[in-house]
Nucleic acid binder design. Sequence first.
DNA 1: CATAGAAATGCTCGATTTGAGCATTTCTTG
DNA 2: CAAGAAATGCTCAAATCGAGCATTTCTATG
Lengths: 326, 326
Amino acid sequence: MASSFSARRSKTSIEPHAAPTIDLSAVIMAATPDEPRVLTVRSDPQQPEGLPSGPLQSQHRTLEMGLRSWVTEQTQLTLGYVEQLYTFGDRDRAEAHDPNAGHALSIAYLALVQEARPAGLAHAAWQNWYDYLPWEDWRDGRPKALDVIEPALKAWARAGGKPLRQFREERIELTFGFEARTWTDERVLERYELLYEAGLVPEALRDGATAAKARIAPGKPMALDHRRILATAIGRLRGKIKYRPVIFELMPAAFTLLDLQRTVEALSGIRLHKQNFRRLVEMQGLVEETGEVTTKTGGRPARLVRFRREVLLERPAPGVRLPRLR
Amino acid sequence: MASSFSARRSKTSIEPHAAPTIDLSAVIMAATPDEPRVLTVRSDPQQPEGLPSGPLQSQHRTLEMGLRSWVTEQTQLTLGYVEQLYTFGDRDRAEAHDPNAGHALSIAYLALVQEARPAGLAHAAWQNWYDYLPWEDWRDGRPKALDVIEPALKAWARAGGKPLRQFREERIELTFGFEARTWTDERVLERYELLYEAGLVPEALRDGATAAKARIAPGKPMALDHRRILATAIGRLRGKIKYRPVIFELMPAAFTLLDLQRTVEALSGIRLHKQNFRRLVEMQGLVEETGEVTTKTGGRPARLVRFRREVLLERPAPGVRLPRLR
DNA sequence: CATAGAAATGCTCGATTTGAGCATTTCTTG
DNA sequence: CAAGAAATGCTCAAATCGAGCATTTCTATG
């Protein structure tokens, strides 16, 4: 297309460097009542694993079709829900910090799948989200990772001058809520980025952060900026389940209400009040009876329910609203 | 970066066609209490106007910096809030429908600015959103555009076979809510896409839709797929103001509560209950007194207030929650 | 200069929604 | 058969929401 600014642009633009490279990357998620999972691949045994990614191929009419096509081809997984996440293009994602390197663009997608059966791809594996971002899991109380992170972040804030220090402290409080004891489950990306800026994740050091002596937050790194992409995906999904019934994309055809609750808890990283969760789900008409029960629950047998697809047509914003933590 | 699928890819990939072209496009918005506005440019007097867009230049470290840079350079506008919207890359956005053409990728950004002073760019102008999407404005009751759209959409649904017909009817009801009288202000993109698929917007005909005899929905077209991008931006902004105080990015430094309400109404396209709106804003602590009043309101003088920046640090999700319409 | 008109503001009230728990029911297991 | 574990049913108070009435305080007008 012709640039709308072409007249002016020709005066100011610089001869393009290397043409940007473009790929599609996918955060493919699955979940059990215990564990939220993401599909990772390891191309180089020496390097940390990363997200599956592939080239943009122009024979597909839409980007999403291109994504579905190569994911299916490579992993034999059938993607359910797919949404575009974000286009990452900051220059520091280039592997080598070659100032002449062009942008390495990556269009990231979030995809949800039901079955967590092993991927057909060699070196691909399902991993627990929280192996990478352990501070995001509050299901068993305050994550121990924060015992390292909190003092390290506070030290980082103190290291700045007066105004910078206050700014940093506010940002820390906003994202981690140490003082107010407020945890906002969706701020996953903001927290990761704060840790990155504070030099508390290995990726930052790799990218040339100064704070070499800073403590490192627990959690496995990933290749390139893939942990950032994962954080983006988790934040997006945590937000989405509150107003869209996407949680069912991760559930089997029939499940118990506790399975559903546990899965929501796994994704959101917080515990919910059982009775209120049930009330919410029933009153929103999100599920319907299958007529069957399961006795494998370890207690009174539970009804098996399934997703009521009709809700997609009824309520403007059906989803699993969550209470605040604390 | 090396593709994680490189081993397999080499077997399956096709020799790339033309390298994709990439540009950044910006939905730059401003608002008055009466009118939500978007900045448009017209490069060709014969063609409908479009959104400002420019090339991706690799000298900027981040995509957002690149965007800010060329927007400032070209329009003299200072962007406040900026967020990435979406990357549009479907092949049908290429001007000519050349099957050999590569993708034309456009990374679209939403930007909010305070002043609606005329842009410095030739052929650039602020336009009312609703010139392009008149069915989105319910402030004065049901938009007349729907008198054309409703029967045309229903005719389109009837034109399909049994299962297709029901599917279409459900989609129409979900997005436009004709029967249930429910209007979900955020579903701007879904509505536009439905009209596009039904062949009710000129862009669809231009792109080769079959339904040449179908009636055309009121509303000015834009160049390429820019009306779709605008719809994406409006939907995003309508959603965002409900849980983030971004509305203040569009307000002057001091304003009355009614100004604020009218601006929210302009963006969301629906009317609000005055007293409840005030209660909400006051109780959330979104504003603070400036101590001054204005007598230009045509009635009892109104207090002038300003945004209370501290709320950014307090509430996890401050914003202007809206009631449902009806 | 009294009055009508237009907003700004203050308050009330019932209907819902939320957050927490208590109490029962109905399985499995030792 | 008793203990333990869940599933389910219900209650209750606090907070929020949706509507509307009543007052106050300006400006514009005859």
